[in-house]
Design a protein around this nucleic acid. Structure first.
Length: 231
DNA sequence: GCGACAG
DNA sequence: ATCTTGTCGC
């Protein structure tokens, strides 16, 4: 018989309403560990995860790409296709992305030493963005690297690679605007789970040597788009 | 009430 | 996220 691609479904108890999602965030947010090192930058298995959507077909594809932290070479990949389980609501992105991302991570034979997410961790209205949420659910060290400042304020970091400035929610530093390339728009780094902010920035710089975005994010983005095209 | 708002 | 061609530049 013809093999149909497996279409992942969210867990039965996955929230369906905004109120239920908010309740989940409120229940899990206290479990986030905001410090730690993860693997020494430049070592270990670093995994990037990302998701692509086809709202017309109600499909979502997730990819997990494992890189060698030193060479930045791809050592393993996994993809999964699922149904869109939640609308895009600012502050509730995790409920849209995580079910499929978990499916992709489970199909990886290796255990990640660090997971790099496309988006935020504790830089979040309730300090529980998707990177922190994924970290708490898996127990893995995670960080968030976002392309936009979301609702937060920041002053422009210096012009050189490695220059950084605090990302602020009022007076609180919830992340950092980090320049990964000379003269190029910074990325926005925040703690996910079990990795501190300075360490998260060090990992980001180590992974973004040749491009603005971490190699993990670039590979995962390309792969989940390809998976969505080829279904 | 209105605008802003990771992906 | 996604809709979308060419184009300037290394």
């Amino acid at each position: 018989m013809i093999e149909q691609p497996a279409v992942i479904r969210p867990p039965e108890d996955w929230p369906t309403t905004e109120a239920a999602a908010l309740a989940v965030q409120d229940r899990l947010r206290g479990l986030v560990v905001r410090d730690g090192g993860g693997p020494a930058p430049g070592t270990g298995t670093v995994v990037g995860v990302d998701v692509a959507y086809d709202d017309d077909r109600d499909l979502v594809a997730a990819a997990a790409v494992a890189l060698d932290g030193g060479s930045l070479r791809v050592v393993e990949t996994a993809t999964v296709v699922g149904r869109v389980s939640f609308p895009y609501v600012p502050g509730l992105l995790a409920f849209r992305e995580i079910p499929t991302v978990l499916g992709a991570l489970e199909r990886l034979r290796r255990t990640p030493d660090l997971v790099v997410c496309d988006g935020y961790g504790v830089a979040h209205p309730r300090r529980f963005g998707l990177a922190s949420h994924l970290g708490v659910l898996t127990g893995l060290p995670t960080i968030g690297v976002a392309k936009n400042p979301f609702t937060f304020r920041f002053t422009a970091p210096g012009p050189r690679r490695g220059d950084a400035a605090p990302l602020l929610d009022g007076d609180e530093e919830v992340g950092r605007a980090l320049r990964t390339r000379d003269g190029v728009k910074p990325v926005f780094v925040s703690v996910g789970h079990r990795v501190g902010l300075p360490e998260a920035c060090a990992h980001t710089l180590s992974l973004a040597r040749d491009y603005r975005l971490p190699e993990t994010t670039r590979r995962a983005d390309a792969l989940c788009r390809q998976a969505l095209r080829e279904i």
